[in-house]
């Protein structure tokens, strides 16, 4: 079976040649098989979001190649890659248009990726029934509010809607950038459970950045730790199944020679303790 995502020694440097030069990602290679669900943790400025931006095409990498489902997308612009890459950000306001209704937001995601792709396509009765069914599956009561502007929804509802928009037509790859970090704990739990279900049901290849080491180890089938733009630790299979939070933190210190310095991870560990 061909790989779903292949990153070959990709590098990205910001502010090259200035005193602020920052090698955000350095010669990073990573391969995801179809259906892989990789969780990513790392310190502040380890290059996690830069990695996502590189994969999504928010900028072009300085070196290296990116293959999505066997096709070279290294120089494909972001909006083209977005046809097959779904993406959720930490800020729930980033994924939806607030002055458009729930139905219009879904229609936008659906019409752009599905079926005919005619610029003059519109949603019909059947599509609307499909939207309602999909919204009902979220269990948030949104199926009766198709005509409500999205701006009236809570952060959790908006994030759930964004998840639905990103997956309404199954993407080849789903990028989740701490997509529950800005939600209150109960809502975060709910959105995370939803994510887990959608990804599993549709067998979506997925990468998730998280600051919660528990979720990092319990969700998905692989975990990578990043530091200074590189992958410093990769876990899967039995080795991952037997790993504890403390074990992971120790392993990080052993590899990198210092403690993990992500404020949020430390805070959330303090909460869990």
């Amino acid at each position: 079976m061909p790989e779903m995502l292949e990153l070959h020694r990709i590098s990205k440097t910001f502010g090259a040649g200035t005193i602020d030069e920052k090698k955000a990602v350095e010669e990073l290679s990573l391969t995801l098989a179809p259906g892989d669900f990789v969780t990513i943790i790392g310190g502040n400025g380890a290059g996690k979001s830069t990695l996502f931006n590189a994969v999504a095409g928010a900028f072009f990498v300085d070196a290296g190649r990116i293959l999505l489902d066997g096709r070279d997308v290294t120089f494909q612009p972001e909006h083209r890659r977005a046809n097959s890459i779904g993406r959720l950000f930490q800020d729930p306001l980033k994924g939806t248009a607030p002055h458009m209704t729930i139905e219009e937001n879904l229609a936008l995601a659906y019409l752009r990726t599905a079926r005919t792709r005619s610029p003059f396509g519109t949603v019909g009765k059947k599509d609307r029934a499909f939207f309602r069914e999909q919204l009902a599956a979220l269990g948030l009561g949104l199926e009766d509010r198709l005509k409500s502007p999205v701006g009236l929804l809570s952060g959790g509802q908006r994030q759930a809607l964004t998840l639905l928009m990103a997956t309404i037509v199954t993407p080849k790859l789903l990028l989740l950038d701490e997509h529950t970090a800005a939600l209150d704990p109960a809502t975060a739990e709910k959105v995370l459970a939803l994510t887990k279900r959608v990804v599993a049901e549709r067998h979506i290849t997925c990468m998730m950045i998280t600051h919660n080491i528990h979720s990092a180890l319990s969700l998905g089938n692989r975990t990578i730790m990043m530091d200074a733009g590189r992958i410093v630790l990769e876990l899967s299979g039995e080795q991952r199944a037997g790993m504890t939070v403390d074990g992971l933190l120790d392993a990080f210190r052993a590899r990198v020679g210092r403690r993990l310095d992500n404020d949020r991870i430390l805070l959330s560990e303090a909460e869990n303790a």
Binding site: A58, D91, K94, T96, A97, P98, E104
Partner: peptide, 17 residues
């Protein structure tokens, strides 16, 4: 819809293809 989204939320636009 794409036009309206462009004016309504620039952030979502590129990520929505």
């Amino acid at each position: 819809l794409s036009l309206r989204a462009t004016g309504d939320n620039r952030d979502m636009v590129a990520a929505s293809s």
